[in-house]
Design a protein around this nucleic acid. Sequence first.
DNA 1: GTCTATAAGACGATAGAC
DNA 2: GTCTATCGTCTTATAGAC
Lengths: 201, 201
Amino acid sequence: MTPTDEPERRLSSEERRSQIVVAALAVFGAKGYVGATTDDVARAASVSQPYVVRLFGSKENLFVAACTAALDQLLAGFRAAAEATDDTLEHRLGRAYIDLLETRGLHQTLTHAFLLGAHPVIGPVARDGFAQVWEYLRSLGFTAEQAQGFLAHGMLINTMIGMRLADDYDVDSRVTELFDACFPADKARVLGLAPRVDDAW
Amino acid sequence: MTPTDEPERRLSSEERRSQIVVAALAVFGAKGYVGATTDDVARAASVSQPYVVRLFGSKENLFVAACTAALDQLLAGFRAAAEATDDTLEHRLGRAYIDLLETRGLHQTLTHAFLLGAHPVIGPVARDGFAQVWEYLRSLGFTAEQAQGFLAHGMLINTMIGMRLADDYDVDSRVTELFDACFPADKARVLGLAPRVDDAW
DNA sequence: GTCTATAAGACGATAGAC
DNA sequence: GTCTATCGTCTTATAGAC
């Protein structure tokens, strides 16, 4: 009988699903919902393209599943940070947000979803997900103004990550200044975690 | 001889180009670079699809042209606001940014470009455009922290517009609160100008 | 649970007429 | 300056074998 860590063993449907969702986040994050193909995702997950479609029913479902997974991870990260006691609550949450860069494509997949508000299926998912984050921040005691400032900073981070601005750090002095202003504390960590232009998805 | 305002007269190449760019901003803004087709743009501009390709050479060129036009309008709006004297400089620029919602799709086309940093052609265009805005703000006397806060707020606005969050205003109380926090002064104007879910592009 | 083969459609781009 | 017709490619999804 094959040991459970054997690489080529058959995986359970659930294992494959979450494995494919991880690949989907990276691919959708880099290329967007329409720009990424189900074949891109399949290759990144080392399975065949029809199997991806078979497991999720459609590309649309896969994207929604990826968004849901991203939001779950985001809220889980926030919850863990909220329970810690070092530093300010806002700083802890901010650090948690940056730590999530380790899940490649998470921020950008969500950002892509946020941009597709006119899409009949993705739009509602995006609005609902965003509202959940808003409500969670408010439930932690953030005032509306604090929550707004926190989210604004987050959206700027998303933009810089999406632009692959880290590639120009130290090369282009204008960008260096922006990074320094944005991440007074953990600039180094951001530069280490940020995806780069030639990162494969 | 036909008067110059005759609707069906032949337009000069330059006139058509800018007319198509206007249509492209609306379409790319709503559907994204890959999601929007050259035929979508052609229909929105009331010309044939091959003609759009003929005029711009490729869809990629058209998108870059749309981004350039968006950035030009943005900087022009900022420059005009900088020369006024009512209100704070930051408030004037903020109002100018919101006024640009009248050019349908401008903010979102730029945001889509910002998300495609990994794209070999669009990525550099996005990074360069963003850097131009950053430098302009700094040249106006904004400190790095002020410019960062201003841009962060702008990115949050982009997100709310992209999500079509205005559709839920007054219906969904969570969103109402966010809007109120974001636009203490000109909430009504934003709600009036923001694109909605069923806006045709 | 996973693959190969493939059908069906959509899209960007070219050719060529007017 | 603008259109119609069309080619070739890419992509999602289905059928069916193992």
